[in-house]
């Protein structure tokens, strides 16, 4: 039974990445595709944080004198993911603005009906 506890964060991140990839590959609505990209982003963030986690240790903030340096988790993935989340929302807004422009030109969100993309 302890196996599932070791694997549950990997299942969460891998499941989110696979669902996002499925949405990107199968769905034809452009906003659905952007939702899938958002899921892939979230899954990769969970994966990075849970690689840095060490069982039984605490967050890397020495706000109380009792916390010793041998008793904290890895701070580097947290610093990486912190900036990646903020970048993620800006790039998502850029993608949605392109979706709005595509809708204004073609009056449809369905990828298979947009003829201008084919060449």
């Amino acid at each position: 039974m302890s196996g599932i506890y070791n694997w549950m964060y990997y299942i969460a991140s891998g499941g989110l990445i696979l669902i996002g990839l499925y949405i990107v590959l199968v769905k034809t609505n452009l906003i659905k595709i952007v939702i899938g990209l958002n899921f892939i982003d979230t899954g990769i963030n969970i994966l990075l944080i849970c690689i840095g986690y060490v069982r039984g240790r605490t967050a890397p903030i020495f706000s109380r004198p009792g916390i010793s340096p041998a008793n904290v988790v890895d701070p580097v993935p947290q610093a990486l993911v912190l900036t990646a989340i903020v970048i993620g929302v800006a790039v998502l807004a850029l993608a949605l603005s392109i979706v709005i422009k595509v809708y204004q030109h073609n009056k449809t969100l369905n990828v298979t009906k947009i003829k201008g993309l084919k060449w």
């Binding site: 944080i49 240790r57 993911v81 989340i85």
Partner: peptide
């Protein structure tokens, strides 16, 4: 997962 900084950013942004 002991990452309060990231939790705060995700709750505000995500």
């Amino acid at each position: 997962l002991q990452a309060p900084d990231v939790a705060m950013a995700e709750a505000a942004i995500g």
